[in-house]
Amino acid sequence: MKLRALLFDLDGTLADTDRLHEQAWLEALARHGIKADHHYYQTQISGGLNPEIVRRVLPQLSQAEGERFLAQKEARFRELAARVTPLPGLLELWGWAQERGLKRALVSNAPRENAEHLLERLSLRFDLVVLSEELPLGKPDPLPYRTALQRLGLGPEAALAFEDSPSGVRAAVGAGIPTVALTTGHKARDLEQAGAFLCIPNFTDRRLWDWLKDHDPAMS
């Protein structure tokens, strides 16, 4: 089947924001006496859903306290992300997809306020936005990607997903979608083990463009 849609994660995929999330999380956890580091962030936080993370790492907080913690953490992230820029090659890929009439969907665990904040700064407009917080299950469950495919009216073989975390890769692959992983926050071997067929540092990678050339709907 022809390639008809590109599905993107947000943080660490459209822009190198993972380090900003890490900084915001570590600052917030430090206020609760948790001396976390990069390894802690990668293994305990990256790619997860905020409410689940708080319940696991700060079980002493009430629901209201957890919500305040997250609101403060996300406000700090948006402050840090004021000058965020697209990953190299993203705009070229965006134009390539637009010229071919490919649908573009955002599939993210990010809170809506963060997603809107980043998309405004990146000047990107998607045909569809699917956010895990608005579904019964988020990544690593495949439901967000299955929801995107359903709303687009496509089978998984007609889509290509871009992710940056093992949990995100598992979600996309679990929905049957071929998945490319960005190595902005995790090692290639971990992303490959999760199911990514290609790992790239950014969207300028020639291997990605070779794959796109081979699956170019304009050449079918």
Rank of each mutant, 00 (worst) to 15 (best):
R4P: 05
F8A: 01
L10Y: 02
G12K: 04
D16M: 06
D18L: 12
H21R: 08
E22K: 14
A24V: 10
A24R: 12
W25Y: 15
A30L: 13
Y40T: 07
Y41A: 07
Q42L: 15
Q42A: 13
S46L: 15
I53N: 10
L58T: 12
S62Y: 08
A64M: 02
A64P: 03
E65W: 04
R68T: 14
F69Y: 11
K73I: 09
E74S: 10
F77G: 06
E79C: 07
E79A: 12
L80K: 08
L87A: 05
G89C: 02
L90I: 03
L90P: 04
E92S: 11
W96G: 07
A97I: 03
R100S: 09
R100E: 08
A105W: 01
A105M: 02
S108Y: 04
N109C: 01
N109G: 06
R112Y: 07
L119H: 12
R125H: 13
R125E: 15
R125Y: 00
F126S: 06
D127T: 05
D127L: 04
L128W: 07
E133I: 00
E133Y: 13
E134G: 08
L137K: 15
Y145P: 02
Y145I: 01
Q150G: 12
Q150V: 00
G153N: 12
A158P: 06
L160N: 10
E163P: 03
E163R: 00
S167Q: 13
R170M: 03
A171E: 00
A172G: 08
A172W: 02
V173G: 00
G174R: 02
G174C: 01
T179N: 01
T184M: 07
D190S: 13
D190Y: 04
D190F: 02
G195N: 00
F197L: 06
F197M: 04
C199R: 06
I200Y: 07
R206G: 04
R207H: 09
K213T: 13
D214Q: 15
D216W: 09
